[in-house]
Computed example of a mutant assay.
Amino acid sequence: MKRILFACLMMLGIMTKAQNGYQIGDVASDFNLKNVDGKSVSLANYKDAKGYIIVFTCNTCPVAQAYQDRVEALNKEYAPKGYPVIAINTNDPIASPGDSYAKMQERAKQKKFSFAYLEDPNHIYTKKYGANKTPHVFILQKTAKGNEVAYIGAIDNDQEEVNPQKETYVQNAINLLLQGKKPTVTYTKAIGCSIRWKKESTTE
């Protein structure tokens, strides 16, 4: 009976983890998604990277829009230090026409994004990572094991940019990683819009 109960608990833990996506310390798998310039992008393309700032976002969410300039600033500050931003549009373009590939291209051109902006039309990697809001950040660190998840959550705690004493979670985490230390805060709650899911999405 104890063995059956243990097996059930183990299965429940596996299912919960699968539903929630990656956890801190997990090794993230690579992807191959289309960028707004028409080229495919994967983590392996960034040969000199020490890690990555993966931002699940979209065109249409007001919260995601409020953070676009901050995402651009993160790339400009940390890409030269080895942590480039890679943004992934989570939303189904049928459920949210403003998130079509053409609209992504328009937004990237309008905002002069210096980072890759990829589409994930079937939510394969959105689900694999466990993103559930826009924006939702996953910081990966290159290690001997692979691309380990070092931080999950919000960019900061000041959506309206009115608090000069705000907690800059992503910047704090990367600054510590660059010093060879682990982030002191590894998880925060992502605040933003719910993802616009495809009615029948394809999974890997």
Rank of each mutant, 00 (worst) to 15 (best):
M1C: 01
K2I: 15
I4E: 14
I4Y: 13
F6E: 15
F6Q: 12
L9A: 13
M15P: 01
A18N: 12
S29Q: 14
L33T: 00
K34Y: 02
N35P: 03
V36F: 05
V36C: 02
K39D: 05
S40K: 09
S42F: 00
S42M: 00
L43P: 09
A49M: 13
A49D: 03
K50P: 03
I54G: 12
I54E: 07
F56T: 08
F56N: 08
T57Y: 05
C61I: 09
C61A: 10
Q65H: 10
R70A: 02
A73T: 04
K76L: 08
A79Y: 00
A79K: 15
Y83G: 09
V85P: 09
N89S: 12
T90D: 03
N91Q: 08
N91F: 10
I94P: 00
A95E: 14
A95M: 13
K103G: 03
M104C: 09
Q105I: 02
R107W: 07
K111T: 01
F115P: 00
L118W: 06
D120R: 10
N122P: 03
N122A: 10
N122Y: 07
T134D: 00
V137T: 08
I139P: 05
I139Q: 05
L140R: 06
A144D: 15
E148T: 15
I152Q: 01
A154L: 04
I155D: 06
N157L: 02
E161K: 14
P164C: 01
Q165F: 06
Y169C: 02
V170M: 01
N172G: 08
N172S: 11
A173N: 07
N175T: 12
N175I: 10
L177R: 06
K181C: 06
P183E: 06
T184L: 12
T186L: 08
T186M: 07
T186F: 04
A190K: 00
G192S: 05
S194A: 12
T202K: 15
T203F: 13
